[in-house]
């Protein structure tokens, strides 16, 4: 026993080295399984605080741009509202008051950190569990989809950016309704790749890609981007489609987090389906 202890003391450097390296590696592998290591991401207190102080200063430089974008969005929303009042869709014909509740709420949030040059990009937001943010909520701007919430702390949250190949989003083509999945290919931050659209579907440059509404993260029809290149994959029956994103990831500032009020209900229902398959 004494020899063993002496052995460890004599070789403590190599043991410490191995322990630290194994620990680092295990962190990397565990991180891949979606939201495990709670304290080790940029929504933790220290790093989120630093980023929010920094962003409160750097925001002044983009005020003009942001103002203009907000004004444009206001105008667009006002037109939509007019439309709805005219067509009477704001008045629901059910008597059940609960059914009048909107399906989706939008939590406005500000981006306090954003990356576009990593291979797996993340975004940190200044809203957390106190504001009703939960993992797997969608994040979008007026232009289009931005990402999905991954980790949440009390006042902050981090989102997996669309520019992260770990995120796949269910989308469809606005014109034909054909659906596929969108995935970043680690290339340009302005483009992503649309997969799983079979050959028999007609597709042309300039077609708009929108969310499908098949997952409870995004409502149907939020714009994402437009088709810029249609290619053929050798040896597969799907197109290789390049999509130019509407949202400019280099200049993201304010976003909306989408809270689907009936998410639990829908998830529970769809879980039953999974059970049926077994």
């Amino acid at each position: 026993m004494r020899n063993l202890i002496r052995f460890f003391i004599r070789h403590h450097v190599i043991f410490l080295f191995l322990i630290l390296e194994v620990f680092s590696i295990s962190l990397i592998f565990r991180y891949n399984n979606y939201q495990r290591v709670e304290f080790l991401n940029s929504s933790n207190v220290v790093s989120a605080k630093v980023y929010s102080i920094y962003s409160s200063i750097s925001d002044y430089f983009s005020l003009k741009q942001v103002n203009q974008e907000l004004a444009e969005e206001n105008a667009r929303l006002r037109t939509q509202l007019e439309d709805r009042i005219v067509t009477g869709r704001l008045i629901n014909f059910h008597d059940d008051p609960d059914s009048l509740k909107p399906d989706y709420y939008y939590v406005p949030a500000k981006i306090i950190r954003n990356s576009i040059n990593d291979q797996f990009n993340y975004i940190t937001l200044n809203r957390g569990s106190r504001h009703g943010v939960r993992p797997e909520m969608g994040v979008c701007t007026a232009d289009g989809v931005v990402g999905v919430i991954a980790h949440v702390s009390e006042n902050y949250s981090t989102a997996i950016s669309l520019l992260n190949s770990k995120l796949k989003i269910n989308v469809k083509l606005k014109k034909t309704g054909a659906f596929g999945s969108l995935e970043w290919d680690n290339g340009d931050y302005r483009e992503t790749v649309l997969n799983e659209i079979p050959f028999h579907i007609k597709i042309s440059q300039g077609d708009t890609v929108v969310t499908s509404g098949y997952s409870s993260m995004f409502p149907e029809g939020i714009p994402i981007g437009k088709v810029i290149k249609v290619g053929l994959n050798k040896g597969s029956s799907f197109y290789a489609i390049k999509v130019a994103l509407f949202a400019d990831f280099k200049r993201l500032n304010y976003v909306d987090i989408i809270d689907f009020t009936r998410k639990d209900e829908r998830d529970k229902l769809e879980q039953l389906e999974e059970q049926d398959k077994k």
């Binding site: 450097v13 080295f17 630290l20 390296e21 620990f23 680092s24 590696i25 295990s26 962190l27 990397i28 565990r30 991180y31 891949n32 290591v37 304290f39 080790l40 991401n41 940029s42 933790n44 220290v46 790093s47 630093v50 980023y51 990356s115 990593d118 797996f120 993340y122 981090t158």
Partner: peptide, 19 residues
């Protein structure tokens, strides 16, 4: 790593270099 959401990547590289 904490600031850049890279799990243990930087920790690994730094320990290796320090060793």
């Amino acid at each position: 790593d904490m600031f850049t959401d890279t799990a243990g990547t930087h920790a690994f590289a730094c320990v290796l270099a320090a060793y």
